[in-house]
Design a binder for these strands. Structure first.
Lengths: 94, 94
DNA sequence: GTAACGTATCAGCCCATGGTGACATCAGTC
DNA sequence: GACTGATGTCACCATGGGCTGATACGTTAC
């Protein structure tokens, strides 16, 4: 969750959803500096959301399963909330 | 996204997924102080993730649709990533 | 009416995070 | 070997955000 809290990191994830990209592309697309992107990509990697593809240059690639897991978790909470909202029972206050 | 980045707020959302609760319950469950919870709940309300139910006491309730929207957005990114990963084409570097 | 409770706001402190530039290392080219 | 570019790390600073306690206001109970 924290990994996705930063707007730039969310932008990175969105860009990587479309295609794997190397830092040179990300610099172009986001306008952020290389070192800053390096920091953010490290965090996204540590969070398990992206991985690297060594190529001519180092490409970064989204890990769909990790993102799907976050989505499923939130979706599950939403489903649970829908079910319990129907029961309409409230826990009494002390 | 930012709204869910804080562990306490994520805990609140998880608790509210199970049932709507008033602050007195949240104080008990989380151990956080009333004023702190009030701050966090304000942020969650501003983010559209929870709403209030005036009752004997004020209850807070999760908005499943809002949470579902976040989940769907992330899920969509994951799906896109899966599709593009199969194409295996890489944007060339300059 | 008074006291207690529920709730939100305010102001302040302190730590975490985001961004930056310098620098180091590695790989490729000449 | 010298140079260049790609990549990541380090140290620092500014800002943002989380938490706290005091306070204000409205409601409820006696």
């Amino acid at each position: 969750m924290k990994a996705l809290a930063d707007p730039l990191r969310m932008q990175i994830v969105t860009l990587l959803a479309a295609e794997s990209l190397c830092v040179c592309h990300l610099v172009e697309e986001t306008g952020a500096k290389q070192t800053n992107l390096s920091n953010h990509l490290r965090l996204l990697r540590q969070a398990g959301l992206v991985e690297t593809e060594p190529w001519r240059f180092l490409y970064y690639k989204l890990r769909p399963a990790a993102l799907e897991a976050v989505a499923a978790h939130l979706g599950g909470l939403a489903d649970t909330a829908r079910t319990t909202a129907e029961s309409a029972r409230k826990r009494p206050c002390p």
